[in-house]
Amino acid sequence: MPTMEFEGKTYEVDEEGYLMDWSLWNEGIAAEMAKQDNLELSDAHWEVIRFLRDYFEKYQIAPMIKILTKELAKKYGKEKGNTKYLYELYPAGPAKQACRYAGLPKPTGCV
């Protein structure tokens, strides 16, 4: 099983670097993952991560993209409430990158 080291602790991750146990997550892990991708996390990035965490805790699944973009629109205005902006924040894709930083499992299925 692959692992990830952070602040002296070892975390189990899957083949693509998703945290195996979402409850072990902390903000430092997200920052560390971003650092490894050479990505600086802005407030908007954190907004996405926190929203994903909250939604997941409530519903045990990540929200669909549209729900996320609508949330961004509420927070940062209409021009930022779209998928395009989300991809600007997370170039590898919201599922692939944002969910991973947020410690959530990768969405499965025909998606």
Partner: peptide, 8 residues
């Protein structure tokens, strides 16, 4: 397939 529970 998604693992989406009823409330979600």
């Amino acid at each position: 397939n998604l693992g989406m529970p009823g409330p979600a």
